[in-house]
């Protein structure tokens, strides 16, 4: 039914013939330079594997201690959630909520959604929620701020090193691995292909019913 054989650039609205670059190539908008598509080899399989790995890593990254500090014999260790709680106890409720969403909740939702979507595509399982999940993932992308948080850890550690000895825990290493995984995940996600596959699946589903 969708027989329109055209494409439009999302940032300058140039009407285009659909660019079909080879795997490994990139298609840019000729007018504004927007990156239109960047197909990856086995995008579905890759996304599925990476989101499972990310989902598993999410738990040690959140539960194991990240950084410990010793002042006058007292040891304080921090995890992602304890920073949120500390802000909350200081009465900075709004900031605590923002930190919680950007560093814990949205990354978890994002990983779950990409795992669900790529899993359904991988096993060719139609699901009426696929479209909604895909839209949510599209909107969440910008609000997953793990890399920014990592930079925050680095700056905080530099500041604290002058004050007291620091100890890095397993949580930090799991967190770094999680960032690498999510970066690879978002970089290799071929949204165009995903939408095409979802459309195909929902058509197949409506045939059967």
């Amino acid at each position: 039914m969708n027989s329109i054989n055209y494409d439009a650039c999302p940032e300058c609205d140039l009407l285009l013939r659909p660019a079909l670059p080879e795997i490994g190539e990139k298609a840019h908008c000729p007018r504004c330079g927007f990156l239109l598509s960047k197909p990856r080899k086995q995008s579905v399989e890759r996304t599925f594997a990476l989101s499972i790995a990310g989902f598993i890593l999410f738990f040690p990254a959140n539960l194991l201690p990240m950084v410990g500090i010793t002042i006058m014999g007292n040891v304080n260790t921090g995890i992602l959630l304890s920073g949120v709680i500390a802000l909350f106890n200081d009465g900075m409720v709004a900031v605590a909520i923002v930190v919680f969403l950007a560093s814990i909740f949205f990354p978890l939702v994002y990983l779950t959604l990409s795992m669900l979507i790529s899993g359904h595509l991988y096993f060719n399982q139609p699901n009426r929620y696929l479209i909604g999940w895909m839209r949510w993932m599209h909107h969440l992308d910008e609000w997953v701020m793990l890399e920014v948080y990592m930079l925050g850890i680095i700056v905080a550690c530099v500041k604290l090193m002058a004050l007291a000895p620091l100890k890095f825990g397993g949580g930090l290493f799991a967190f770094i691995a999680l960032i690498i995984i999510t970066t690879m995940l978002t970089g290799g996600l071929d949204t165009r292909l995903f939408w095409q596959r979802i459309e195909k699946l929902s058509k197949k589903n409506s045939y059967e019913n």
Binding site: N76, S82, G83, G152, L160
Partner: peptide
Amino acid sequence: FMISILVDLV
């Protein structure tokens, strides 16, 4: 994020 870590640790 840096502040949330500092507030928590110190």
